[in-house]
Design a protein around this nucleic acid. Structure first.
Lengths: 212, 212
DNA sequence: CAGCCGATCATATCATCGTATGATGTCGCT
DNA sequence: AGCGACATCATACGATGATATGATCGGCTG
């Protein structure tokens, strides 16, 4: 959640059990000054991948022990949101469709042209950059929200829903004065300088907790 | 934009130049009580499809005169947001990937099992229903927004941005009284019963006009 | 031209909001 | 026992917002 290391350099994470292929890809990326990291297996990747990785993933849809589709589920569990580029040696169309529907940003049949892979990575990087920007904003808001007391959260919810202080007081069986205090504390802790700003923060929290 | 005819029944729109295939698909859908409409060409579809169609589209990626990919672009121009299910007789993987990236919800290689098509349509219907619900809400808001005078829109923008009446007055070189009048008119015309509600409407407008 | 709409401003009243000051009570942890 | 966080409520004052009444002005339209 926190972001101590500011400069997350974008990295292509390559997962494949074929060592020559891994090295070939790594060299391809290095030749255009893109940092690459290689992993021989999914386990290897999950144990070594940094928390706040930026960049994208490149892997074969057919991996030892797990297929590329279930893997995309695993990623979510580990909080990894890297865009995925799937490769396939002898993939058929149904497999391609499942891969794309599972969220892959691209799907390259082997053999592919180097330029196609580079294009795919460029797009994946761009997407990841956007997603990170959005996620970082939301994370900052959620972090602040975590510092609110239970009462303050209740009041914030009702206030951003459009209830007046007086109505909130009725809803929670409180005096209006108490509501004002909680409301003020929520504004201060969230860093909101206006009610509309607080409303947008509430929205950001809803959006980033519902899909989770 | 308007929605006079409430009961838009979901319809599968089938576009294919092969008449036997059209009829076979039509019969398949009718056998499970799904309404189907057939079109021999893209032009035929674009001239006959109703404004507010609900349901989904089924078409071959290779059509006479236009390919299925450019067609997805055409749909946007005509304001059609129906989910697209692509079929392909001899499609390869790159074509599949392009189709999926262009927004197709599914891609069926011919020949396909009837059940696969029905599943795809069921998913497409479900997606369309969700999209329509969201779009209808946004459309209602946009319709109301259209009734605002230019000044009222300016004031609404600044107010939902968190500016106080006094500040808005300064921004627009107006008296605070005038701002209050425009603000009140905006609330009334938009049907917002609270400032947070107005803020969410403003967000809905932003979201539905930026991607356009 | 008469009427309507948009835009402007004033005065006035009332409700609501924001915040400070001060006080009481519970709980948990040291 | 004491400290701190949380929660509660009161009084009070000033700022802000909502609304009504009334008025002026320009432009468009029947």
């Amino acid at each position: 959640m926190t972001n101590d290391d500011m400069s997350d350099q974008a990295v292509v994470h390559i997962i494949d059990d074929d060592k020559p292929l891994r090295e070939a890809l790594e060299n391809l990326f290095l030749s255009v000054s893109i940092e690459a990291a290689t992993y021989a297996s999914v386990q290897d990747f999950l144990s070594r991948v940094p928390e706040n990785a930026a960049g994208c993933l490149v892997l074969d849809i057919r991996l030892p022990g797990i297929n590329g589709l279930d893997f995309q589920g695993k990623l979510a569990e580990h909080g990894i949101t890297l865009p995925v580029i799937l490769m396939s040696g002898h993939g058929d169309i149904p497999m391609t469709v499942r891969g794309m529907k599972a969220g892959a940003v691209d799907f390259l049949p082997k053999p592919f042209r180097d330029q196609d892979m580079l294009d795919a990575v460029a797009h994946a990087f761009a997407r990841n950059k956007l997603e990170r920007a959005v996620a970082d904003d939301a994370a900052r808001v959620v972090t602040r929200y975590a510092t609110l007391s239970p009462r303050e959260r209740e009041v914030m919810t009702l206030v951003t829903a459009g209830r007046l202080n007086k109505q909130v007081a009725g809803d929670l069986n409180l005096s209006e004065i108490t509501v004002k205090i909680h409301r003020g504390a929520a504004m201060r802790k969230m860093g909101a300088r206006s009610l509309p700003e607080l409303v947008r923060m509430e929205e950001a929290i809803r959006r980033s907790s519902i899909p989770a």
